[in-house]
């Protein structure tokens, strides 16, 4: 059967699209290295290490739960311009970051590339690595361990070293500057570390209830302990029985402090405090989580001061 076609529209479209989009899109040209981090914590440390040599953007706001972020296309656009991606790893961003990376069409930040840096690689030890079989009956468990390691200031120093190392590879001309900036940051954190230890020294061994296990690294560093968590398992809301057990245990151990990260609902913590006679501290766990917390040192300073103040006068251990 013969066919009579008028215009080869399809062929024209193919040629136009291939020509324009393969060769017509401008290359990314930056005077500065463009860093995109998943959290404000990593962004703040990257700014300390890179200073005027880098431009830093972040995805998750300081008052936002980093476990749950909508992979908006606007983040893909941001990632499209990145030379270096910094992320916590350990599955913290596992539900949303891969989609942003893929949607960005940026080869530099794909897994396995030099522009993709999993910050957990330098952290040792990783806490709370589940032993044995892991499944979803355990809630939103992190199978590779607790990813909230930036709450430990010693880990903050490690993060600065890792960033300096990677920035030096991407921008070897400024290697010395990156390492010098990292050393400067580390020395400031180290000098504060002694002060923070002194402030919390009297409370070593104190048991505290928290909503989620966001505080493990902070507790590990300063000798504090969990009494329990409000959520039954990671991401699973509490039951009346669970909170009742916690309330009774708080009374028995004379433990009266409940820490609630400021992106979790405070109503369970308030109810627990009402039944146990305890008190609630709603605190930021990331930089820019509160207006007065804009740097890494300010975050740890704020947390140490708030917790020390709340624990003063408490008899519980």
């Amino acid at each position: 059967m013969l066919k009579n076609k008028s215009v080869p529209v399809g062929n024209l479209l193919v040629a136009w699209c291939l020509g324009f989009f393969l060769f017509g899109t401008p290359a990314n040209v930056h005077a500065k290295l463009h860093i995109v981090s998943t959290t404000t914590d990593l962004a703040a440390i990257a700014e300390e290490v890179g200073r005027n040599l880098v431009e830093v953007n972040f995805i998750c706001r300081g008052y936002q739960d980093p476990h749950y972020v909508d992979p908006k296309p606007s983040f893909m656009r941001l990632m499209n311009q990145a030379d270096l991606l910094l992320y916590h790893g350990l599955d913290l961003e596992g539900t949303w970051l891969p989609q942003i990376i893929e949607g960005s069409r940026n080869r530099k930040v794909r897994f396995g590339q030099m522009g993709n840096l999993d910050m957990s690689l330098g952290i040792d030890p990783i806490l709370e690595i589940p032993q044995g079989i892991v499944d979803r009956s355990m809630g939103d468990i992190h199978p590779f361990g607790n990813p909230h390691y930036s709450m430990d200031p010693v880990n903050g120093m490690t993060l600065a070293d890792s960033m300096a190392e990677r920035l030096s590879i991407l921008d070897p001309d400024n290697e010395k500057t990156y390492h010098a900036n990292a050393e400067d940051f580390k020395s400031r954190v180290a000098s504060k570390l002694k002060e923070w230890h002194e402030k919390l020294h009297d409370f070593e061994g104190t048991r505290i209830v928290t909503y989620h296990r966001s505080w493990s690294y902070f507790f590990h560093r300063f000798g504090l302990k969990y009494l329990g968590n409000i959520e039954i398992r990671p991401g699973i809301l509490p039951s009346p029985r669970h909170l009742a057990e916690l309330a009774v245990e708080m009374k028995r151990r004379k433990s009266d402090l409940i820490l609630n990260a400021n992106y979790y609902p405070p109503k369970w913590a308030e109810l627990l405090a009402k039944k146990s006679g305890g008190r609630v501290a709603v605190l930021p766990v990331h930089i820019k989580g509160e207006p007065q917390v804009n740097t890494y040192i300010e975050l740890i300073d704020y947390l140490v001061d708030q917790i020390a103040e709340k624990l003063s006068g408490s008899a519980g251990k």
Partner: peptide, 26 residues
């Protein structure tokens, strides 16, 4: 919770296998 505390102590005592800085810890 008690079990988890025990595991923490174990984990902290174990020499950890390090991966390269180009991979992902898993």
């Amino acid at each position: 919770l008690d079990l988890m505390e025990e595991r923490l102590k174990k984990v902290e005592g174990v020499a950890r296998q390090r991966t390269t800085t180009f991979g992902t810890r898993g």
